[in-house]
Simulated assay, not measured.
Amino acid sequence: MAHFVIVYASITGNTEAMAKAIAEGIKQNGYQVDQIIAYDAHASDLNQCDGVLIGTYTWGTGELPDEMLDFYDELQVVDLSGKKAAVFGSYDSLYGDDGIAVDIMIEALTKQGADVIADGYKIELTPNAEQLEACAAFGRWFSDQVAQK
């Protein structure tokens, strides 16, 4: 059975809500998924799963949040060759960004050899019910893509 890991950082609960909905979609497909808050995550743990999802909000005008920095640093020395991955997150355009932290994480995963199989999935501010269902659908789609290896 395919095993997935979602590592996420969330300050307001927006990205956490996305992570939970994506995880629910993965579970609906019958797969195992671990959700880990970025503070508690270790990049080396990603080697133990079939699919990786990273969720991050964008801080300020386009930075990774503090909660994600240690994980990001660890990620720089992990070989993720062939590992399928995706990144999602929330942002606030009031600060002039469009979810840049999601793009930063995509670049980091790609640099480490991961096969990022989807564009960054971004939602501005709090996801509504329709957007949360879209997150669940994304989880179902992603898990099916990984399981088809």
Rank of each mutant, 00 (worst) to 15 (best):
G51H: 12
G51V: 03
V52D: 04
L53V: 04
L53G: 08
T56Q: 07
Y57F: 14
G60H: 12
T61L: 09
G62W: 06
E67W: 06
E67R: 07
E67G: 11
E67S: 12
M68N: 09
L69A: 10
L69T: 13
F71H: 03
E74T: 05
Q76A: 13
Q76W: 05
Q76H: 13
V77E: 15
V77N: 15
L80H: 06
S81T: 15
K84S: 12
A85H: 09
G89K: 12
S90A: 14
S90W: 07
Y91G: 06
S93H: 12
G96R: 02
D97T: 14
I106W: 14
E107I: 08
A108G: 05
K111L: 14
Q112I: 00
Q112K: 01
A114Y: 01
A114T: 08
I117S: 07
A118I: 00
A118F: 13
Y121H: 06
I123R: 03
E124R: 08
L125F: 09
N128T: 06
N128Y: 08
N128H: 11
E130P: 02
E130K: 11
E130A: 11
Q131H: 02
Q131V: 04
E133R: 11
A134P: 00
C135W: 02
C135L: 05
A136I: 03
A137I: 01
G139W: 00
